[in-house]
Computed example of a mutant assay.
Amino acid sequence: MALSLMRLGFRSVASKLERSAAILSNTSVQNQMKLIHSKVTCNGNVCYLQAFQDQRDIDLSEYAGALRRNYSKHHGRPEENRRKKESDSESDSDCDTECKGFDRSEFWRRKMRTVHNILDVDKDGLISFNDFLLFSERFKSLGHLDEQQAKEFTAIIKLTWEEQWGAIDPYNFVTVEQYLEDMHHVLNDKTLKKKAHRWLPYLFKAVDKDKSGFISVKEFKLFFRCLGLDNEHAAVAFAVIDVNGDGKLSLKEFVKLGKDFFTTEDESRVSKMFWGPLIDV
């Protein structure tokens, strides 16, 4: 009899503990969901991110990094698929390094940090899918893509995110170092490398205001405006990358420059100017 009562007592205590844990867990999840919530809002040619964040005594970078690592274990693209072993990877002929190990030059790393900063539209030090979406909305809001092109652009942006960084989720962030590592592996994987920047033609079409099939310096300024850069930088960059001096860039030239920026470590290549001035750190 005493033994039975003891068992009932233990079960009652255990049940209360489980209920308490469930309540605490649910509260924690709700608090985390309140912490990060954002959406894209566009008004004419201006797009911005409405964000509601409670940053009290929280290091967002560390918090997001921990959440991302934990989340990717269960929902993101498996690490063994995203991180190809060097023995299984292939490199294309337009990569002017051996593309093995993490021995890329500081010049290349500086370029990748520059792009990370551009894609980090809300400037919180992390790239999220919301940043990707906002980036595409800036170009679409110019109004030069037709309805079908705009839909394709959005679909490709979404697919690129999923293939490179996994599930679309508010907890899935990409830090600067993660971006450097991921881009290194993308360039080592022949399939991913070909797909990684397939959205470049849509950037060209979005700023080709007169639909001539060429971008003038004036239209290139639209491109830099969407990158969050000023006209002065656009004029300087265009003067450098317009190597034949005809005052215009074709779609082929534009895409080649955009891709070359990611693949080359040659500091003499004019493509280093494509995404604007390189950041210092």
Rank of each mutant, 00 (worst) to 15 (best):
R138C: 07
D189T: 09
D169W: 11
A150E: 10
L180C: 14
F153N: 02
L119W: 03
D131Y: 02
V40Q: 13
T263A: 02
A14W: 15
W161C: 01
S38A: 05
Y171N: 11
K256P: 04
S128T: 05
L251I: 06
P201D: 08
L8P: 01
G143D: 10
F129N: 04
E90D: 05
S93C: 04
N117I: 01
E162T: 15
W165K: 00
D103T: 13
N70K: 14
D96T: 01
A51Q: 15
C99L: 07
N81K: 11
E18M: 09
L35I: 01
V255R: 07
T263H: 04
S38R: 10
L180A: 09
E152G: 00
P277C: 10
K140P: 05
R83P: 00
N26G: 03
N81E: 15
P201W: 05
R11K: 12
M1W: 15
V115E: 00
D230Y: 08
L257A: 10
R225P: 06
C47P: 14
L180D: 07
Q32S: 09
K248Y: 08
T160E: 09
T191M: 13
A22K: 10
Q148V: 03
S61T: 08
E62T: 02
S4T: 14
M1L: 15
I58K: 12
L203T: 03
L67Y: 04
S91E: 10
S12N: 03
D120I: 04
D242C: 10
F204D: 01
F204Y: 09
V270L: 05
K190N: 14
D59E: 14
D94S: 11
A206T: 07
F132E: 00
I157K: 02
D266A: 02
E90C: 06
D103I: 11
G101E: 11
N244A: 08
K34W: 03
C47K: 12
S38H: 07
T97V: 06
R269C: 03
F135C: 06
Q30W: 02
L5Q: 12
K73Q: 13
D96H: 01
A66W: 11
C42M: 14
F262E: 02
F261M: 00
R110S: 11
L200F: 04
I168S: 07
T264R: 04
Q53M: 09
C95F: 05
Q50R: 13
V40D: 15
E86F: 10
D92S: 13
D146P: 05
S136D: 04
L35E: 03
E181I: 08
V174H: 01
S38E: 12
R138N: 05
G166D: 09
D280R: 12
E18K: 08
W161A: 02
G213P: 09
G125T: 11
D260E: 14
V29S: 09
K100N: 07
H185K: 15
R82E: 13
K194G: 10
E137M: 15
L187N: 00
V255Q: 10
S91W: 02
F129P: 00
T175S: 15
V243Y: 06
W165T: 01
V186G: 00
R69D: 15
N70P: 06
P277G: 09
E162A: 07
L3K: 15
M1A: 13
C95T: 07
D266T: 02
